[in-house]
Design a binder for these strands. Structure first.
Length: 319
DNA sequence: TGCATTTGACCGTC
DNA sequence: GACGGTCAAATGCA
């Protein structure tokens, strides 16, 4: 543990040095980049050591545990951070993840106030004043789950990392007081499977590298036997439809993302590859892979590599 | 040809 | 009336 602390101290020192030298380094991008790399490396070292300690503790003291079943204490925060990092396909650096953590903590205040607003209840019950176009009532009391997701550094940085579902963009809106527009997505299979899941994506004003993603509604597209993914991502459905407050009060959603071995398969990309469309065969494949690597002794009893490369399911989309 | 994205307009809520 | 969420025609792409 001492090594971890030393690594963190070293990283902190580097950050302080960088802050002091920032005015001088502003014209030296290469030096600046090098400095950032050093900081990143220091934090990464600390994280890796923490991970090792965490693994050791977990295997020696307690049975494997689903992450969301743990209490949001410090070790859990670390695991969350690492998971977020893994989930972003290493597209963000570890120090960005720390930024995210800070941003997320700041976001709690927003969510607290939102909770108040959300609890006002649904007043619209599908009464449409207009006859020109049938419209759905606003789902005011629908459970929401707000999360912060790092923007990829490579590829399409306009979109947050894929989240295991396929989404179709149906709108974009400039939001008052926000620098960046909010994008609206619904499940690709909304019509086919009457899937009501939706999400809104918006960059944070103060940190364009982080997306605030708000999920609403349940994914029902996995319930059908003919559904595109044969395994219902139950853990995610639960997260979306419940515990809005609980989830919001924690660091990030990944705290609550149960790693379901049965859902893990290699990731595939859309044949059409639309920028906002993500198609994972399973859910959070990167997380699953990490789970396989780090928690291979889980209660499932499956060989971790077997579940990673399970040949059992062709999860290609029904599109 | 079919599906996804864009974008202006529409509509409900406050 | 302002704002946010949604619709749907137009457009793009493979």
């Amino acid at each position: 543990m001492e090594e971890v602390i030393n690594s963190i101290r070293r990283a902190s020192e580097l950050v302080q040095n960088l802050q002091q030298d920032l005015p001088n380094l502003a014209n030296q991008p290469e030096t600046l980049s090098l400095s950032i790399d050093q900081i990143t490396q220091a934090f990464t070292d600390a994280k890796e050591k923490l991970l090792l300690i965490s693994r050791h503790t977990q295997t020696s003291e307690s049975p494997p545990m689903l992450l969301h079943e743990t209490t949001p204490q410090q070790p859990q925060m670390d695991a969350t951070l690492i998971q977020e990092w893994l989930r972003s396909s290493h597209a963000v650096t570890m120090d960005q993840m720390f930024q995210m953590q800070l941003a997320s903590m700041a976001g709690r205040e927003v969510e607290d106030s939102e909770r108040t607003i959300g609890s006002e209840g649904d007043q619209g019950q599908g009464i449409h004043a207009s006859s020109s176009r049938p419209r759905r009532s606003r789902e005011g009391n629908q459970e929401k789950k707000k999360i912060l997701v790092p923007a990829p550094q490579f590829g399409n940085t306009e979109m947050p990392p894929e989240d295991g579902f396929t989404w179709r963009k149906y709108g974009q809106k400039e939001i008052l007081g926000s620098k960046y527009p909010r994008s609206y997505y619904r499940c690709t299979h909304q019509k086919l499977y009457e899937c009501q899941a939706k999400k809104m994506v918006q960059r944070l004003d103060h940190n364009a590298n982080i997306f605030e993603v708000t999920y609403r509604g349940k994914h029902t597209c996995h319930m059908s036997s003919t559904a595109p993914s044969s395994v219902p991502p139950e853990h995610i459905l639960v997260d979306i439809t419940q515990n809005t407050n609980t989830i919001s009060s924690q660091l990030s959603p990944s705290v609550n993302l149960t790693l379901h071995p049965a859902t893990a398969t290699a990731a595939t990309t859309s044949a059409r590859g639309g920028p906002s469309t993500s198609r994972y065969a399973g859910d959070y494949p990167v997380l699953d892979m990490a789970d396989a690597m780090f928690n291979s002794g889980s209660s499932s009893g499956n060989n971790s590599m077997e579940f990673l490369f399970s040949p059992t399911e062709d999860k290609s989309d029904a599109n």
